[in-house]
Design a protein around this nucleic acid. Structure first.
Lengths: 141, 141
DNA sequence: CTTACTATTGAAAATGATTTTCAATTATAC
DNA sequence: GTATAATTGAAAATCATTTTCAATAGTAAG
């Protein structure tokens, strides 16, 4: 499997864009985090390494990573956009604890299959989906 | 089944709030729309009936209706909060066409059941969930 | 290596939906 | 009616996100 940096570089080249140290650094820091970071959180992490990188650059770089397929955007409905690792990761759904904010990543092929069938029954061509289950995690319930 | 207005009134009384003609009017106009209205859309409809009702009141009243269980808030991930009828309506999921914006309401008990089981497998107590399938509707595909 | 070209950066300002503020108004209980 | 406190609506504040723009820095060509 290609490295994430190679994937980014390939994407950048194919679009006639440029490889910059900011982009490389933001990618590395994103990869080193445990998923689901907001732009603001990521910006703070990035600033620790290099104070001169601005919020805007983090914002723009995450959009770039999204386009290149390296990260996925997730919306838990609280008005803050978060990002998760996507390259080399399977699709999954989320269990979200409404008390402590913890999330669990889950996967149920049978549900995926039923969603596919449900869509077809309505003449709908599914491209992607989002399943979020809100409730209480083991510790909070 | 109690009327929606009766439900609202009961909720209002139970909280020591007041019945106002604005709240009644906004509820009626919301009920007369075909679901999935944003606050902005609803405000425009309301203004046709009564120019003196402000945006803020519509906003606050919809929050009130949400709390009372008369409407549900839906987030399609485009940054705009929409509302749908909830009282006397079954839970359902959404198929959302990414081309024309159409949405289809669907229901698959088997999926609900599997979600329940999936949650339990992870020691999670599910309260509510959100399933949105994005793709192309019959006409657009 | 140097130049020319143009993408990128970062600070600040703009955007846009949502939420709060506050003085005036209005519903409700007594 | 009167007193009390909730409600209203205009305007301002919030807050994440997005755009602007002048300065900076990759990249390719010479």
């Amino acid at each position: 499997m290609k490295s994430e940096l190679a994937v980014l570089d390939e994407f950048i080249r194919s679009k006639g864009l440029r490889h910059t140290h900011q982009r490389e650094e933001i990618l590395n820091i994103f990869l080193s985090t445990e998923k689901h970071v907001s732009i603001d959180e990521l910006f703070k992490l990035v600033k620790r390494h290099d104070k001169r990188i601005g919020y805007t650059t983090v914002y723009r770089t995450m959009k770039l990573l999204s386009e290149s397929g390296l990260c996925g955007e997730i919306d838990f409905g609280d008005g803050i956009l978060r990002f998760e690792h996507k390259y080399g990761h399977e699709h999954h759904d989320h269990l979200i604890c409404t008390k402590c904010g913890a999330f669990i990543e889950v996967m149920k092929p049978k549900i995926e299959e039923l969603q596919e069938r449900l869509s077809r029954e309505h003449g709908f061509t599914p491209m992607r989906h989002r399943l979020q289950i809100f409730g209480l995690c083991k510790r909070c319930s």
